[in-house]
Simulated scan of single mutants.
Amino acid sequence: MLGLKKAVGMSVLALGMLGLSGTALAKDAAAAAQVAPQMQVILEAHKSLKPVLPHTVSPKEARKGVTAADAVKKTLKDQGKPVAPKAVAKVEDKELKGPAGDIPVRVYTPEGVGPFPVVVHFHGGGFVLADLGTHDASARALANQAKAVVVRVEYRHAQKNPYPAAADATAAFQYVQKNAKEFNGDGSKVAAAGESAGAHLATVVSMRQKQGGGALPVYQLLVYPFVSNDVSTPSHQANGQGNYLGKDWAKNKDPNALPLNASKAQLSSLPPAMVLTAELDPLKDESQQYAKNLKAAGVKVDVKNYAGVTHEFFGMAPVLDVAKTAQADAGMALRKAFKAAPAAQTGVGGSGMTEPEPAKE
């Protein structure tokens, strides 16, 4: 597994955890473990689009690069299938007040009559890449599977805005929790969710709400969360000066930046969680260790690992059966959490207008 982690790590972690690397990932992962046939097709589609390695260009240029969603669309076209996204009742863009200006959000409303439970979702992209347009498939799936309004949150990107700039996430969560009616949502049933860097933000929201005495999310959906800076691949080190944690990224021990460093006391009483991992993902080990840490702190955690797939697989359901299963698992967990949530919560901490202070050890 170490060889696979190194091979995939050079392709994923060093590139802001974008997910698909093309040649290196498809070749090296196949040599080290069994890649699901459908996953291999997507990898080849990604390779055919001739992606530029993000760490070889500026962040601005990297954000214009080939994404996992592009690979899925290419696969659908190659298979003669429609590329239209899964339907939801409504999608609309809004802006919320945040600590450094307005925070863009995209709101997905499912079919039915509200008020609905709410999932506040944070996209991946290594804190550098991706935006409200890149994880559309995940948001639509969660809206339909969880029967919830999904509020996807944009946040300030590194390298221009290093830690703790993405505390936009906490401000956005607090706003949605207080003003759920604006979204046809139920403020007593708000979950935090994310993928990769976004899963990091989702769990940090929970930690910061606890620190500030605010109402916690009713659930954490953490899809291959980034929770540690224990990365030794050469390309990640070469790009370390430009990452979210700043120039001293390797020395950072703040649990609000790296949740794997959180103590048992800091993790205790956090909301129940589901942690989803991919077999061929360099984040698998740290994600599963974080789940163990949560369990050791008394948090109820459901951990599911999906064989034969890579980072970014969660949004690939149109062409990847394993992703359909993962989305269904996530939806069921969220529905159960919403059903079990108390009828009302009070005491949301903070105004949503200032960044919380890092936890003190």
Rank of each mutant, 00 (worst) to 15 (best):
M1A: 15
G3Q: 10
L4W: 08
M10F: 00
G19V: 10
T23S: 14
A24E: 13
K27G: 11
P37D: 06
V41C: 08
S48T: 10
L49D: 07
L53F: 09
V66N: 01
V66P: 00
L76N: 02
L76Y: 03
D78I: 08
Q79K: 15
K81R: 13
P82V: 07
V83S: 13
K86R: 14
A87L: 12
A89Q: 15
D93M: 03
G98I: 05
G101Y: 07
V105N: 02
G112V: 00
G112E: 03
V118K: 02
A130Y: 09
L132A: 10
T134L: 06
H135G: 08
D136G: 09
S138R: 10
A143M: 05
A148T: 03
V150S: 10
E154A: 14
E154H: 12
P162L: 08
T170A: 06
A172L: 04
K181M: 03
D186Y: 04
D186E: 09
A193E: 01
G194N: 05
R208P: 00
G214I: 01
A215L: 09
Y219F: 15
P225W: 04
P225N: 09
P234A: 03
Q237R: 10
A238K: 10
N243V: 11
L245M: 13
L245F: 11
W249N: 05
N256S: 13
P259R: 02
L270Q: 05
A278N: 08
A278C: 10
E279N: 07
L283N: 07
D285Y: 07
Q289P: 00
Q289D: 13
A291R: 03
K295A: 15
A296P: 01
A296M: 04
G298N: 09
T310P: 00
F313R: 02
F314K: 03
A323R: 01
A328L: 04
A330P: 07
G331L: 05
A344R: 12
G347V: 12
V348H: 11
V348D: 12
G349W: 03
S351L: 09
S351K: 12
S351N: 13
T354F: 08
E355W: 09
